[in-house]
Design a protein around this nucleic acid. Sequence first.
DNA 1: ACACTCATGTAAGCTGTTACATGATTAA
DNA 2: TTAATCATGTAACAGCTTACATGAGTGT
Lengths: 179, 179
Amino acid sequence: MAAGRVSLRYFVLGLLAQQPMSGYDIRRFLRNLSWLIGSPGGGSIYPILRALLEDEFVTVEVFPGIDRPPRKVYTITEAGKSAIQIWLEQPVEPKAPMKAFVMRLLLAGSYSQASFAATLQQRRAQVLAQHNDLQESVSAAEGGFDRQQQMALDYGLALASAELAWLDLTLDQLAQRAA
Amino acid sequence: MAAGRVSLRYFVLGLLAQQPMSGYDIRRFLRNLSWLIGSPGGGSIYPILRALLEDEFVTVEVFPGIDRPPRKVYTITEAGKSAIQIWLEQPVEPKAPMKAFVMRLLLAGSYSQASFAATLQQRRAQVLAQHNDLQESVSAAEGGFDRQQQMALDYGLALASAELAWLDLTLDQLAQRAA
DNA sequence: ACACTCATGTAAGCTGTTACATGATTAA
DNA sequence: TTAATCATGTAACAGCTTACATGAGTGT
């Protein structure tokens, strides 16, 4: 599980945990969210599906299409469910790109309500740490930075603040719904 | 120039365009910005430096240290300057991760003021497009989305809005300074 | 005639990461 | 004595992207 990487493999498995799909279905689904998590081509999805099959995390059923190519629909197995649960239990790595968090957002809810809140709280902690780090850099600078570096830091601060605001709002809404 | 990739290679070359540095210097500099663009290890930086040397985009000077290992300081050549300018002239790919834009922020200013503003405006256009796409998805949904998907879209919208606000503010400040 | 959607897949490659190796010096 | 900083580098591999191949059907 190399750090800073996204693991499309587990995300695909997580999608199959929600409902059985074909590789093409998955690609179509991702095309709608392409800005948030990118939309991988056939060269990414199909090898993953085959690997999941070999690990017996999924099973296939082939539906021969009338007037269309046959669809191979993948269904998650018990072993697959265990694997995805174990994966969801461990926190998103701090260095992972934003889309790793979005993937969790999309999956965590179907696992349990508690893990969904936990995902948001973990992210909050990480973004807060990031925000503090950046502010420390700004303070510690004392003229040691040029205009571009200051801008980059300011940009980071602005985005971190906005994300914290969203996370707080969302966590509040979640708490209210629970009550 | 594979899409969606960052090209650390050109970023390193761009940093050397600002001032001669050793591989270790570059790593130290990046460690301070690790949240924004990550901090690559020796296994990433040193091979890049060697490749830049082989392409004659940089030259080396070895400074033998008293009580420390010798430092190899790299200086950009005319060929290197041409290469980085050509690279800066072409826009950041839309699918590229955020850190690709931060790298541009850090480099574009030293190339020309105009290219700096252009970088911001390009980003603005891309983020705006992203924002509109997301809103379209939300509108087109009509109940076809579950709670998690709605949240993911909302998250994307919040971040895109915040980034647009920052870009507009920064472009304003830039215009005022120019006047 | 051209291109696009449906649907799967292979092979090659790029970029970057990890783990390791070296070796001296300095701080806990 | 254990670890960290300074400073460079190699080798292996993970993860993903790209380009390509197939082939029927549908639209312009």
